[in-house]
Computed example of a mutant assay.
Amino acid sequence: MTEAKALASFFKRNQYLITMQAKDVTTEESLSLPPAGGNCMNWVIGHIIVHRDIALRSLGATPILDERETEIYKRESEPLTNPEQALPLATLVERLESSHQRLQTALEQSTPEALAHKPDPAEKRTVGEGLRLLQWHETYHAGQLELLRHMAGKHEKLI
């Protein structure tokens, strides 16, 4: 299996997991903050899209979020508590699906040479190494969604 196909497969698994965890959760429920700190489901899914945008850019594809939306969900942004600031969860799930489709297409069209390329001579990682790191990061956050789903009052076993 090529590196691109392996990455596509891992992202596809995450897509399924994230979509299942967000199923039937309202925007209001998605804004429940963990009592011991951290961020809410809405922020985690938006944050995943921010990092998929990084992956898309590294493959020469068009990102999903605009600059204002990226500010809401980027690393080290303030905890998301204001419903007026948050994107509706249904919108995030739609954007997640769009990012998934773009990422799958970009990976299908990538070459081994493109994945082995270092975008900047000062850069330590190749495009492929960067994508593997982004995929790991996404999996890390996808794992948080089960607990955040429980916080939203959804307790059925999904996977």
Rank of each mutant, 00 (worst) to 15 (best):
R52W: 07
E76T: 02
N42V: 08
D53L: 08
P63F: 12
I72R: 13
I48G: 00
I49M: 07
L59I: 13
R52E: 09
M41R: 06
G46N: 04
G38Y: 07
S58L: 14
H47L: 06
G46F: 07
R52Y: 04
R57I: 05
S32Q: 15
A55K: 08
A36L: 15
G37C: 10
T62C: 06
V44G: 00
T70N: 13
R68F: 00
H47P: 02
S32A: 15
L56Y: 09
R75D: 01
V50R: 09
L59Q: 06
I54Q: 14
L33R: 08
I49Q: 04
G37W: 10
I64K: 06
N39I: 07
G46W: 05
V44I: 12
E78K: 15
E69M: 12
P79Y: 02
D66Q: 10
A36Y: 12
I49P: 00
V44Q: 07
T70M: 14
A55T: 02
G46H: 13
I45L: 08
R68M: 09
N42H: 01
S32C: 13
A61K: 08
W43Y: 01
A55I: 08
P79H: 05
V44C: 02
I45A: 05
D53A: 05
V44L: 00
V44T: 12
R75P: 01
G46C: 07
R57T: 11
I64Q: 03
S77Y: 05
G37A: 11
R52G: 00
G60N: 04
E78F: 12
K74V: 05
P35W: 14
I72A: 06
P35I: 12
